[in-house]
Design a protein around this nucleic acid. Sequence first.
RNA 1: GCCCGGGUGGUGGAACUGGUAGACACGCAGGACUUAAAAUCCUGUUCGCCGAAAAAGCGAGUACGGGUUCGAUUCCCGUCCCGGGCACCA
Length: 925
Amino acid sequence: MEYNFRKIEKEWQRVWKETGAYKVSNDSAKPKAYVLDMFPYPSGAGLHVGHPLGYIASDIYSRFKRLKGFNVLHPMGYDAFGLPAEQYAIENGVHPAVSTEKNIENFRKQLDNIGFCFDWSREVRTSDPAYYKWTQWIFLQLFSSFFNRTNGKAEPISGLVAIFEKEGNIGHVSPANPSLVFDAATWKSYSHKQQQDILMDYRLAYCGEGEVNWCEALGTVLANDEVVNGVSERGGYPVVKKKLRQWYLRITEYADRLLEGLERIDFSEAMKEMQTNWIGRSYGSEIDFNVKSEKATVDKLRVYTTRPDTIFGVDFMVVAPELDWVPELASAEQLQSVQDYLDYVKSRSERERMAEKKISGVFTGAYAINPFDGREIPIWISEYVLAGYGTGAIMAVPCGDERDFKFAQHFGIPITNIIGSHFDGEEANPTKEAVLENSGFLTGMTMRDAIGAAIDKLEVMGIGKRKVNYRMRDAAFSRQRYWGEPFPIQWKAGEAVPLPVADLPLALPHVDSYKPGPEGEGPLANIPAWVAKELETNTMPGYAGSSWYFLRYMDPHNNHELCSRKASDYWGQVDLYIGGTEHAVGHLLYSRMWTKALYDLGYIGHDEPYKKLVNQGMIQGSSRFVFRVNGTNTFVSKGLLSADGTYQGKTIDKLHVDVNIVDGYELDTQAFTKWRPSFADAEFILEDGKYICDSEVEKMSKGKYNTVNPDDLVDKYGADTFRMYEMFLGPVEMSKPWDTKGIEGVHRFLKKFWRLFMDEEKGLLVVDEPATAEELKILHRTIRKIEEDTERFSFNTAVSSFMICVNELTELKSRKKSILSDLLVLITPYAPHIAEELWHQIGNAGSVLDAAFPVFDEKYVRESAKAYPVAINGKTRAEITISLEANQQEVEQIVLADTSIAKWLEGKPPKKVIYVKNKMINVVI
RNA sequence: GCCCGGGUGGUGGAACUGGUAGACACGCAGGACUUAAAAUCCUGUUCGCCGAAAAAGCGAGUACGGGUUCGAUUCCCGUCCCGGGCACCA
């Protein structure tokens, strides 16, 4: 019987489906394990070989935990709202729900091909009204809550209203408007609208004003990456910033808890660092400077600095250009330059400003007065200072800050040195250890000490105060789009009124056109009935549905709650979460915040969603190129080109060619002529009868013709081979280029594995006889290795161990049922189909999916002696087998008596003999 | 510019806590079986030197230059290159 993987795999997939082998119960005496993949956006392009990498890893881990006796939740679903479907709808008139459904169907088929153990009865789709009902419900919870800073928790806003009625807002500073203070009587005197406006500044989900990239010509709002050089990527139309009503999540209130939570979860240090940097907590102070300007309409400039100790080294101020009052600073002489600069900045996207390396800015003509020495400090504006961070203004200290230094140098601003020899005039020195000079009352102090002293003095003078700042901003939570969750909000006389929970879900209405509404509103603004009901016309962003989906899997069909408390208490945190680093600061922060809010409000019992996160690397494409003689249809093999890339002096075009018609580097010229009509009459200049292509590692994408479809590989080699090969490629966390060539080796391995059990003619070879010590040693070494490697996600080395084990058993012609049965269980997580088939072939009952993972017993692998490497001065010179019982003295005797060692000693005694038991021996001479 | 990864044979990678560098594969070369091919199996494969060859031996070698150590792919300092991320964060 030969290894007919096509038949075996289809057959067992059918059986597993029929028997509900992957259905998971919420009611089990077994310990639980929750293994989750970041769910995919079902794009029209389908899966390529990069996508399943993480899914295979989590699938192996899930199956492994199941064999180890866990009740394993391993669900899958779709992040089904998103821009591409809407764009496709605009271009082709197909409703996003229709194209999404079709794409999901295709994804499902591709996923099923690979043989995953997902419990599909728990599938979720964020675009399903039964799902987004609860996304809307959570939004209403956030809308109806505020963050109580006195105990650091989200609480219902009704409690805040009660407090306001009793004592005003003395104990609860407004996050959005810190200077607002009112007492109970004042609160009661406010109109309903005024009260609602104040409450909006406290809500965790709130409505405010925000700037968007508005493109008049396209009549739509654009994402940052759709704007290039101030014009739209599509069409090249002008883009301006426009203020629109926007919803936000007050994630900044959770900044400290998001930082604290990182200490309790198992994320990579790199990931924690990224989140920490994103939140960006800094300790500094705000300082007010008096302003001297021609117009004299601005009397104070408030800056934020982490280094108040350097205040005597301030040589200029920089203000963010977009602050409203900037023109007020301009002197008559500078007004034109300031206006020109503001126009320039307006045309630039945020992204461009960030990437900009060249220094730009303009002097306003106004001065700030140093409060300690009365010096007049010129005030500049420059795009390197952002309005959204701190106060939108900085005090620039060129001797201590690199950017300030370069700015001063570029514009010829004189530099004050306050750190003596620590500053060399060549580059800034950001030290905190220097002793201050030229610094008034701070002179003679180390900078570290002066920070506190400076703040103390500023506070006494009433012109400065300590301030903790966060880099993170509140999360914009609305989009002017169609294909997203509608907000369950009605606008009545300018007040946002939540819909009653009983009216959820607020279903996304049918539209005839996906075109944007008037004035940058979303397509929902085009529906008269919608507008008549005064419903919010924005929709929620892509990350809304993905911020809580891990909870829905636990109880996916619950119509009364987002997830029953019983279910969420049983499954608790996700034990293993696998996904890419691109979500480091988006999805992972948002879902952590939602979890904390739901925890605060008592809906779930844990405040961190993911116990452990593993990041999968990106699989890059290995592109192939052909060389066409410019202006002809003649293609030259790579090796025939000159060093300068020409052929017989003629220019060459380097073109991407579909990797699927290249075998390694050799082009299938037949297939090439059929690939595209324009190549039908292509001519080839070959080397050694072959056409050799060039290659480059690039991102995998359709346009580069370097995508590989898993379906093709599964068809050719089977799912088990594909699964093991993806793992064999290297560590999951690492990025690596895809190379189909190596898959043959893994396929050969599985065929060899099969032949341990089966002979093509004779059939089953397995015998029920006692195993030898040698066989048991091989088995138990493998058990130990597979268990350790799977537990630490080292799947590539686990595959190697299987290969080694099979090579050794083949060598021994071992056919013992007891050995091979255990081996089948070991390989089940990796190659479930072949394992199940052989499990039944050798006469085992039940499914191998539920077999017990073999228990490692050290006694079978114990050794009595070791072949030690013996080194002379660290260089290995011999291998001597010595008993593990031997002591230092005995070892020295044996080693020094060895002829190949003795010759290095030339009769002299060694200085030292280092003997590390079970490791090595080193003779020092 | 800043932050995070990573540089090991022709290729993917292994070496888990400082202890035989290159496991396991791919590719390549040679051979067996076959009319032939596929499949399968066997042998070799870091580089250089020495050798007719084999065996054995010698030297170098984990991006580069230093350091610590009996011993460094692993730890420390400096440099270069590649990949990814970013909101110039005061």
